[in-house]
């Protein structure tokens, strides 16, 4: 007789395997249009990515959104803000380390001072006192540091559960998770080994809860939600890498004499 836990595990494994088998693969480059398309989108795994995107949306619908909705409705606003601030505060040391690796000691200093202020008079990070004292928040991660080091941001990848990414940002996520100082400390102590995972889950719920309305509005208004997310993710990441400085060759709608749009040539640099 099969042990029930083992049976469940086998079932999950089988389900995962069949999902993998169903992956539609890459864009088949069988025409000049398809080749041009991949050059433009830098998304050679688009069929697979779209498949995972739909899977993520389904998981969001049945798990993440209900949990986030519950969190949003059940917890009073000050509690939610406190949780959000505390999570953001925990990120500051890792942000400072990345600032250093990106060659921005001034920004690292701001992150360190923020952490000191909010951890003390902000009561373990529950209140953001630093912003009003002239130390505004910023976040850095390993993906951005890799970008500064010159790693390319293509091709586009849709990660299961984690969402839009690319090899650089995916590696960055792993490094963030493994090397974040608080995760490191927690893993070294037997009683706290679950901390990194729980922290990640709460961060996810917090973010989802804050964006319930906007995500829904965006889903409703877009005609190809996958493409919207792909485009916005890249632009957003590029802006984060530049720390909000204006792009060198930001494209803009421009009318030529014949009345044709000439935006294509000015596609955002990756």
């Amino acid at each position: 007789m099969t042990h029930p836990v083992r049976a469940t595990r086998q079932l999950v494994l089988a389900a995962l395997l069949s999902l993998m088998m169903a992956l539609p693969g890459c864009v088949v480059l069988d025409s000049p249009e398809k080749i041009a398309q991949v050059e433009e989108t830098q998304d050679p795994f688009e069929p697979t990515n779209r498949y995972i995107f739909e899977l993520n949306r389904f998981l969001d619908e049945i798990v993440m959104k209900p949990v986030a909705t519950w969190y949003y409705i059940a917890l009073p606003n000050p509690v939610q803000d406190g949780i959000h601030n505390a999570l953001a505060n925990l990120r500051q040391p890792w942000t400072a380390i990345n600032d250093v690796f990106q060659g921005n000691p001034d920004r690292a200093y701001v992150a360190v001072v923020r952490f000191a202020i909010n951890s003390s008079i902000g009561i373990a990070g529950l209140f953001d006192m630093a912003t009003s004292l002239g130390f505004p928040e910023h976040e850095e991660d390993a993906g951005q540091t890799f970008a500064i080091m010159g790693l390319p941001g293509d091709p586009y990848l849709m990660l299961p559960i984690l969402g839009p990414s690319n090899p650089r940002d995916a590696a960055g996520l792993a490094v963030d998770y493994l090397l974040d100082p608080f995760n490191l400390i927690a893993r070294s102590r037997d009683s706290d080994t679950a901390f990194p995972f729980i922290r990640g889950m709460v961060t996810g719920v917090d973010n989802r809860a804050r964006n319930l309305d906007t995500v829904e509005a965006l889903q409703k208004s877009s005609v190809d939600f996958y493409a919207t997310v792909r485009s916005a993710y890249r632009q957003r990441r590029n802006a984060e890498i530049r720390n909000g400085a204006p792009g060198a060759n930001a494209p803009a709608p421009r009318v030529s004499q014949e009345g044709g749009a000439s935006g294509k040539q000015a596609a955002p640099a990756q």
Binding site: T41, A227, R230, S231, Q235, A239, G247, P251, R254
Partner: peptide
Amino acid sequence: FDVVVEGVSMSVTQRDEFSAVIQR
């Protein structure tokens, strides 16, 4: 002629979206 929110250009996003629909 364009609104850029936290580094995301509305015009570019929409162009990419429309382009994807046409390609598909």
